[in-house]
Structure formats: structure tokens, C-alpha cells
């Protein structure tokens, strides 16, 4: 049995999802030889620290009732720097302008020789190369499956399962909010504004939906794929982005009459990173509805491989984080 000491930095929906999943899978982890101890949980208001292992269910219920995880006045960065542990689970909110606190956290983790598993897109979309370099020179492992497509295992599929293949292109639907809105506009023959309001009511869209509906979120995910899989040195600014706000119900009907659906498609291949609404033939593997995500990977040996799955949700994203943790320590 190997004891792995982890910190959870950021205790919003994803961080809490990770705590729930770790509780639920504690026995399973022990069965495969991993004794995972969370030694610190930090949110924006404070921290809970216990080098013997934080009581996760107590932390979750404290967060629910008090809105904060702990009373200790110490930041994530301080935890990463001062408390000895193996892996930083970085789930702070994303910032695509600067990479934000997430970027500092990750760099500090590598500086102290810790591994990083994250769901935080911003730092990777802005500074992938710096992060990868810092991880390499520290001998740390850097895993970020949860940043692209939530539970849909796209990065590990390409880097592990399809190893040896040359990747020609990846295209797909990488934002569940846009997919939901377009699917519902089609079903209800309703306007973008109406279906955005519905998505907000159901919690599929943020109060400020810009990040999703203007294609920014999908663009960040493409940048991560471009850097991690195609070895590019791209940032968000290199993406040609068109969102879904101008799509009319009439255009969806015209498309349907000719056997198409309209989807917000992200694509990355040599010299091209683009997010734009596209016509997808009905019945095509990329024509999935609702909040689903989907990605088609074009390879030289395996041909085209398409996967679909839930692109968001706290437990789904935590699933990707858990699988990254297991892949690092199950040896």
C-alpha cells in the first residue's frame, strides 16, 4: 500500500465532487494499492488542514452549511509551499486572461516537486508550455484530462490508448451549454434568447453566459489539445472563434429540411484552431444532442475514433480527475 498525500485547492463544484468521489471510492483505491489522504482543502475563504487526513464528509457538510471549508487563514499557495504532500488537485475557478491563481498554484506545486492534477483550463490555455517545462524539470507529473470534455476521456485516449498513431485532426462539440441551447432551439423552434434563458434556469448556463456562448470555453479546450497533442505553442488568441449568439431558429429549420443540424464545432489540426457553427449531417457521429460533448479523432492507423460523453458536472469532472490520479500512482 502506497500512501499518497493530496491537497484540494479550490472547493467549488468540482473540488467538492472530487471529495465525494474520493469518499465513495476509498475502498476501491485501497484495493488497487493507493491509500489517498487529503491533507488540506482550501477555498477562497480559508483552509482545513490535517496532516493525518481531513475528514472529507465533515468538510463537505461544513461547506454546505457555512459556505466555507475551514477556519484556518491560509491560502492555497501557502499550503502548496509549506505542507509536505505528493499531489495538488487544482480546481480553482478558471481565468483565461492571466491564468490567475491557478497558474501560480501549479507553478508553485512543480517548484516543490509535487504532481498536479487539474480541471482548471485557464492556466493551460495561457501558459501550457511554461507549465509543461516546469513539470518536466521538477520531475513532476502533470495531468489535466478534466480540462477538456469533462468525463469524456479525450486526452488520455489519444496519449495512452491511441499511442503510436499520428493524430491528423480532432473535431467535435466541446461545450455542453451551446449544444443544449442549439438542440432546444431546434426542438422548440425557439429563439436563442429564449433557450438561453431556459438553460440558465436549469443551471446549464451561467448568469453571464459569454464564456460559453461566444465559444471561448471551447476555444480554450482546443488550445489545450493543440498544445498537449499537436505540440503547438498556442494560446487562446490563436483561435479563430465564432459563437452561437447569431444563430436563428429559421437557420436551424432550413438546415433540418436539407438533412443537417447546426452544431458549435471545434477543430484542431496542423496550422488551424477554429471554433464555429457548422452544418453536421443528421446521423453523423458528431450530431449528438442535449448537453453531450463529442470528439472525433482522425488518426493515421486507427482511422477515425469518436467518443461522446458528459462534458460537465461536478461528479463527471471529478471522474476525470480520479482517473488521472490513479494513472499516476497505480504502478
Amino acid at each position: 500500500m502506497k500512501t499518497i498525500r493530496a491537497s484540494i485547492i479550490g472547493f467549488g463544484a468540482v473540488g467538492q465532487g472530487v471529495a465525494k468521489v474520493l469518499l465513495q471510492k476509498a475502498d476501491y483505491l485501497k484495493d488497487i494499492g493507493i491509500d489517498l489522504k487529503v491533507i488540506a482543502i482550501v477555498d477562497s475563504q480559508g483552509a482545513e488542514i490535517d496532516t493525518e487526513g481531513v475528514d472529507l464528509s465533515a468538510a463537505l457538510s461544513r461547506k454546505r452549511t457555512d459556505g466555507r471549508v475551514g477556519l484556518e487563514n491560509i491560502t492555497g499557495l501557502e499550503v502548496i509551499r509549506t505542507i509536505d504532500h505528493d499531489v495538488v488537485i487544482e480546481t480553482t475557478p478558471t481565468n483565461i486572461e492571466t491564468g490567475g491563481v491557478g497558474l501560480e498554484n501549479m507553478l508553485a506545486a512543480f517548484e516543490h516537486g509535487r504532481d498536479v492534477v487539474t480541471s482548471n483550463k485557464g492556466p493551460l490555455a495561457m501558459k501550457y508550455r511554461d507549465l509543461a517545462k516546469a513539470a518536466r524539470s521538477a520531475g513532476s507529473t502533470f495531468r489535466f484530462e478534466a480540462t477538456v470534455g469533462g468525463a469524456m476521456p479525450i486526452i488520455n485516449l489519444i496519449t495512452d490508448v491511441l499511442a503510436g498513431n499520428k493524430i491528423i485532426s480532432v473535431e467535435g462539440i466541446l461545450n455542453g451549454t451551446c449544444n443544449y441551447i442549439l438542440t432546444r432551439m431546434m426542438e422548440e423552434r425557439a429563439s436563442y434568447e429564449q433557450m438561453l434563458a431556459e438553460a440558465q434556469e436549469l443551471g446549464f448556463a451561467e448568469t453571464d453566459p459569454t464564456y460559453d456562448v461566444e465559444g471561448i470555453d471551447a476555444a480554450c479546450k482546443l488550445v489545450i489539445l493543440a498544445n498537449a497533442i499537436f505540440g503547438m505553442d498556442a494560446t487562446y488568441k490563436d483561435v479563430d472563434v465564432t459563437g452561437i449568439t447569431k444563430i436563428t431558429p429559421e437557420s436551424l429549420i432550413l438546415a433540418e429540411d436539407s438533412g443537417y443540424v447546426i452544431k458549435l464545432i471545434g477543430e484542431v489540426k496542423k496550422d488551424l484552431i477554429r471554433v464555429a457553427p457548422k452544418l453536421v449531417p443528421n446521423g453523423h457521429p458528431l450530431a449528438v444532442g442535449g448537453t453531450l460533448n463529442v470528439a472525433s479523432v482522425q488518426t493515421d492507423l486507427a482511422g477515425t475514433v469518436t467518443i461522446t460523453g458528459r462534458g460537465a458536472g461536478s461528479i463527471e469532472t471529478a471522474s476525470a480527475i480520479l482517473s488521472d490520479i490513479i494513472s499516476i500512482y497505480k504502478k
Binding site: 473535431e171 438546415a255 477543430e267 457548422k278 452544418l279 449531417p281
Partner: peptide
């Protein structure tokens, strides 16, 4: 005008 093209594979 916004132009919506078919996906590449198409």
C-alpha cells in the same frame, strides 16, 4: 453575414 459551412469530413 454569418456563414455556416458543413464540417470538413462532409
Amino acid at each position: 453575414l454569418l456563414i455556416i459551412e458543413p464540417i470538413e469530413t462532409e
